[in-house]
Design a protein around this nucleic acid. Structure first.
Lengths: 197, 197
DNA sequence: GTTCGACCAAAAAACTAAAATGGTCAATTG
DNA sequence: CAATTGACCATTTTAGTTTTTTGGTCGAAC
């Protein structure tokens, strides 16, 4: 009854696994379909039975990776009891997970500028997930009368933008202790503001 | 008694003006000393009487531009009456000034990755100025019992990092009204926090 | 003190030929 | 029919070479 056999998903997954390693090491451009095929112990032509193109292989790799990061973040956020805890879990998990992934795919630093349109789309889709996550935390905080937010969408968007800025700056910093201190400082401002009560 | 004559500073300034236009249009790498010289109605060799190297010409251009931006920001901040007003003035002026400069030097988007070490130094020096400005506003807010901040340095640094993130995201957005709305939303969070009082 | 033409080593651009690569397809296998 | 692959091709990338341009120097001239 299923459209894809066990065999087929198996081989597909095998190709994705092989591709992930090679993409991670060499980036998108320098990775060849032949290399992936060899690593997956298949002929190059066989790859085209499972994927339309090189882009599609890459897309599958990234989507799988993104799904794992999302799951990790969702788990951490769900474990938080209060909205404040959820927020802290979100920021911290997001930061470390993204750093881990970025480190794994470090080859992509070199071709950061050669932004392919399909990568841009993947990024945009991930951004939407992030904003949705923040919005959801904020909404719960509102419902529990912990947060007071005027414009939910705008606030979520603003926090998202700021978080992206932090990501860039902390990508270099490897001292985990320092990062946590910074995050706590930021969360303190975020929760309670600068103005004296 | 002066080391440099009026004549000399005149020619120097003339070269800087010519160089600014060309650097702005073509970026650092694609600008040649010969072009600059022609624009300044001088022989190429003459430039080396006033500047040691191409880098030094560029440095002079950037330093002058940075001085103007700093002056503009300082003026706007000084005009603010309360610490809140000063902060708003700082963020808004900084954002628009930097956007204007970035737009003028749009050719540099292409060679953004080819980060020359001397550009990195200029950037670092400007960052120090920014952190100092934020720190000064925060300190005044503390003195006036308007702001309550635990760690001045860390808070200033965190705000600075977040501001950089915003800069990147808003560089594309040209709708001034939208930017102001965003800034006000961010300042609202910054001042009063998310947590209900 | 200024200006600049002649000059040079080094870097960049232009050009070319050879190799590699993404993708197709018909044939083969099980 | 699902899966696999070797032969093949148009296009791109790479490597190697030559030519041009460029940043910078120097000494002469004003």
């Amino acid at each position: 009854m299923e459209l894809t056999t066990h065999q087929e998903t198996d081989v597909r997954q095998n190709i994705i696994n092989a591709a992930r390693e090679i993409f991670a090491r060499y980036g998108f451009r320098k990775t060849t379909m032949d290399e992936i095929a060899r690593a997956a112990r298949k002929g190059k032509s066989s790859l085209y039975h499972y994927f339309k193109s090189k882009e599609e292989v890459f897309q599958a790799v990234v989507e799988q990776e993104a799904a794992e990061v999302k799951a990790e973040i969702n788990r951490a956020v769900a474990a938080g009891r209060t909205p404040e805890e959820k927020f802290r879990a979100y920021v911290l998990t997001r930061m470390t997970a993204l750093q881990r992934v970025a480190n794994f795919f470090r080859a992509f630093k070199d071709e950061y500028l050669e932004s392919y349109s399909f990568i841009e789309q993947l990024r945009e889709s991930y951004n939407q997930y992030e904003i949705a996550t923040i919005t959801s935390i904020l909404r719960e905080g509102m419902a529990k009368k912990v947060f007071a937010v005027k414009d939910l969408e705008l606030t979520a968007y603003t926090i998202f933008i700021a978080a992206k800025g932090l990501e860039y700056s902390w990508a270099l910093e490897s001292d985990r202790k320092k990062i946590e201190t910074n995050i706590d400082c930021m969360l303190d401002i975020l929760f309670y503001g600068l103005v004296r009560k």
